[in-house]
């Protein structure tokens, strides 16, 4: 009798505990859903604007699928602008930049991670320093330099300018990650007769996939979204990247918001795709400094 009473009691307590846990979980989910809504809402609004018919672009309508929704803005983006060219240019420049940037960073970070040499600390500080240069400060000299190298309106000029700009961050990320890979792995390989290169190429690099992916992602988004440098180097509208093209839709006074929104959404898709694809590495690869232990 007493025994069953006690078990009933504990069952009740368990049930209460469960209920409280469930409530807590529900609250957490609620908060997360709210946060997600705040993150995604502007994107949905862009979608709404892009679907609105031409004469009602700006309105107090909050519906996500507006009345009289139409694809007209999208059609116009493809037929009335050089959108495909812009996208293409952006793609070429961005991919080339990312590959070059990651390659350069991977060796440099390896040097910082595995070797002791004079100036290593100074080098890392200076890398941080490059992030502190005010935007726009280097534009005029950069322009003059690109001019003299006669790289105006070329992919090459853009790739050179871009691949360097994300280098410091990539080096940091990669160095942080290399640091977490035990040296003993390479040492064992070296004992087995592998060259230093072999150790780096066959052991360190494959193990660093997450960090390489993150560095690639950073280079990619940086180059994909860049505007100021592109504005200076590219003057031929067939060579424009999409950022420049998008601003083409802004006239002296009037901006064509419908097309602007449609084009914005279309260019958001590739970066989102890259982000989603690399999201599995996002958490493990972001090692600005490793957690020890």
């Amino acid at each position: 009798m007493t025994e069953s009473g006690a078990s009933l009691e504990s069952l009740r307590a368990l049930r209460l505990h469960r209920r409280r846990e469930a409530l807590k979980t529900a609250l957490i989910h609620g908060a997360l859903i709210l946060a997600c809504a705040a993150c995604v809402y502007p994107l949905l609004r862009i979608l709404a604007v892009s679907l609105r018919p031409g004469d009602r672009i700006i309105s107090t309508d909050l519906a996500l699928i507006p009345q009289g929704a139409t694809w007209a803005s999208y059609v116009k983006v493809f037929t009335e602008t050089n959108f495909l060219f812009w996208l293409w240019n952006s793609l070429v420049i961005t991919v080339a930049t990312s590959v070059a940037g990651v390659a350069l960073a991977s060796t440099a970070a390896y040097a910082f991670s595995r070797f002791k040499f004079p100036g290593a600390k100074l080098g890392l500080s200076l890398l941080l320093g490059t992030q502190m240069l005010p935007a726009g400060m280097l534009l005029l000299p950069l322009f003059l330099m690109i001019m003299r190298l006669r790289l105006m309106n070329t992919y090459l000029g853009m790739v050179i300018a871009y691949s360097v700009s994300s280098l410091p961050f990539s080096i940091w990320i990669l160095k942080g990650y290399y640091d977490t890979i035990p040296r003993s792995l390479e040492e064992a390989a070296l004992v087995d007769g592998t060259s230093v290169f072999g150790a780096f190429y066959r052991i360190v690099l494959p193990l660093s996939t997450p960090a390489l992916a993150i560095a690639f992602l950073f280079n990619f988004t940086q180059a994909w979204n860049e505007y100021l440098v592109a504005r200076v180097i590219l003057t031929d509208s067939f060579k424009y990247t999409w950022t420049l093209g998008l601003f083409d839709l802004q006239g002296q006074y009037l901006t064509q918001w419908g097309m602007f929104a449609a084009a914005s959404l279309l260019v958001t898709i590739p970066v989102m795709g890259v982000f989603l694809y690399s999201s599995k590495w996002l958490l493990t690869g972001m090692t600005l400094g490793g957690v020890k232990g």
Binding site: L32, C36, P42, L43, T221, W224, T243, T268, M272, L282
Partner: peptide, 9 residues
């Protein structure tokens, strides 16, 4: 969904 603001240009 939470990284959307970061992923957007």
């Amino acid at each position: 969904l939470l990284i959307v603001p970061w992923a957007m240009p």
